[in-house]
């Protein structure tokens, strides 16, 4: 794909004897929203963690903006601030206030002056609708608020791509909505997103492309309409049956 912002080719990643990614290829166009689903252990998280180098793939290539993802200086420089990530467990910095959580990256990694970093931080806090929590510590916030702070923290780096690793899985049910709402809004701004999630309602509304993974492979790729109406493979049908009717 010529306009691919992310291009993965035959990516392999193992943990010991377990092959988490077994020759996975995926192209994501600029502005595309991809939702990845599949049973646990199917390699969804590993795939997005390889894209921002939290895991090192052992074979195949991943390119972001045409630059191969590896440990070279050029690659690290090119990725700096380009790929944001939201974690299942939020991973906010517990010893820093919300505001300091948001300004740390821009100030230290992007060398922004403090006032500018604060301004950006307040802008994104407003966008995730909790500007009044700026001076609180993460533990003083609810899970949903913490995850929204985590989203804002990633956005403060002004990334081109946002990765979400089961962002609502650790949340109480009543807080899932507020996080999905923020993500839906983000999708409307044209952000390139890869979202690992089982929230199929969100997927239907937001995804351009659905990806179904099983046992380290991408088994099915389709636009949501076709994906939900007529899954092509047996395994995908099974999986959708289970999660849509639980």
């Amino acid at each position: 794909m010529a306009d691919a912002i992310i291009s993965a080719r035959d990516v392999i990643k193992s943990f010991g004897d377990f092959r988490a990614l077994d020759a996975v290829s995926l192209d994501v166009a600029r502005g595309e929203r991809v939702v990845v689903c599949g049973p646990s252990g199917s390699g969804k998280s590993t795939l997005i963690r390889c894209i921002n180098r939290l895991e090192r793939h052992e074979a195949g290539t991943i390119a972001v903006n045409g630059v191969p993802v590896d440990d070279s200086r050029r690659s690290r420089e090119a990725r700096r601030g380009t790929v944001g990530m939201v974690f299942q467990q939020f991973n906010l910095f517990p010893h820093l206030t919300v505001l300091d959580n948001l300004t740390l990256g821009p100030m230290r990694a992007l060398r922004k002056p403090e006032d500018e970093a604060r301004e950006i931080a307040m802008r994104y806090l407003a966008r995730v609708r909790i500007p009044e929590q700026a001076d609180k510590y993460p533990r003083q916030l609810s899970g949903g608020q913490q995850q929204r702070v985590a989203i804002a923290r990633s956005l403060c780096m002004e990334p081109e791509i946002m990765l979400f690793d089961e962002p609502t899985s650790a949340l109480d049910p009543e807080m899932i909505g507020e996080v999905l709402a923020v993500m839906t809004e983000l999708a409307r701004t044209g952000m390139t997103m890869i979202v690992v999630t089982h929230e199929m309602g969100f997927a239907r509304g937001v995804a351009d492309t659905m990806v179904f993974m099983d046992r380290g492979r991408i088994v099915e790729t389709a636009p949501p309409a076709r994906f939900f109406a007529a899954p092509e493979t047996e395994r995908c049908r099974d999986f959708l049956q289970k999660i849509l009717h639980h």
């Binding site: 700096r80 601030g81 944001g84 990530m85 974690f87 991973n91 780096m157």
Partner: peptide, 13 residues
């Protein structure tokens, strides 16, 4: 926690 390193890395520290 390991997640703290990952979060730091995800904001390019």
């Amino acid at each position: 926690d390991r997640g703290q390193y990952e979060a730091a890395q995800s904001v390019s520290l």
